[in-house]
Amino acid sequence: MKALTLCFYLLCTVTYAGQLYKVIQQDGSVVYTDIPTGNAQPVDLSSANSAVMPAYQGKIPTTTRNQKVEKTSVSHQLIISSPTEQQTIRNNNGELSVVASIEPKASGIAQLFLDGKMLIQQASLNFTLHNIDRGEHVISIKLVSQSGKLIASSQDRVFYLHKASVLTRPN
Rank of each mutant, 00 (worst) to 15 (best):
Y32C: 00
Y32W: 03
I35K: 06
P36T: 00
P36K: 04
T37M: 09
G38S: 11
N39W: 02
Q41M: 10
V43T: 02
D44P: 04
D44E: 03
D44Y: 03
L45S: 06
L45W: 06
S46K: 09
S47F: 01
A48L: 08
A48W: 02
A48D: 03
N49H: 08
S50N: 11
S50A: 08
A51L: 04
V52C: 07
P54T: 02
A55T: 13
A55C: 07
A55V: 02
Q57M: 04
G58Y: 07
G58L: 08
I60H: 01
I60L: 07
I60S: 07
P61E: 01
T62F: 05
T64L: 12
T64H: 10
R65Y: 08
N66Y: 15
K68W: 02
K68R: 10
V69M: 08
V69L: 13
V69H: 02
E70F: 01
T72I: 14
S73E: 08
V74F: 10
S75A: 14
Q77G: 02
Q77W: 14
Q77L: 10
Q77T: 13
Q77S: 08
L78Q: 04
I79Y: 07
I79H: 08
I80D: 00
I80G: 04
S81E: 11
S82R: 08
P83V: 02
T84C: 09
E85V: 04
E85D: 07
Q87Y: 15
Q87W: 13
T88Q: 11
T88G: 09
R90A: 04
R90P: 05
R90S: 10
R90F: 12
N91K: 12
N92K: 08
N92S: 10
N93E: 05
N93S: 06
N93D: 04
N93M: 09
G94P: 03
G94R: 09
G94D: 04
E95Y: 03
V98S: 05
V99F: 13
A100V: 05
S101G: 13
I102P: 04
I102Y: 09
I102N: 04
P104N: 11
P104F: 14
A106S: 15
A106K: 10
S107Q: 15
I109C: 10
A110V: 07
L112I: 06
L112F: 01
F113M: 10
D115N: 15
D115I: 00
D115R: 07
K117T: 14
M118C: 13
L119P: 02
I120K: 03
Q121R: 13
Q122D: 05
Q122A: 02
Q122W: 15
A123H: 13
N126G: 02
L129D: 02
N131Q: 07
N131G: 07
D133M: 01
R134C: 01
R134E: 07
G135P: 06
E136I: 00
E136R: 04
E136Y: 06
H137K: 03
V138A: 08
I139L: 07
S140T: 04
I141T: 04
K142Y: 05
K142F: 03
L143P: 04
V144N: 07
V144A: 14
Q146G: 06
S147A: 12
G148L: 15
K149F: 15
K149S: 13
L150E: 11
L150F: 12
A152I: 15
Q155T: 09
Q155R: 13
Q155K: 15
D156S: 14
F159P: 00
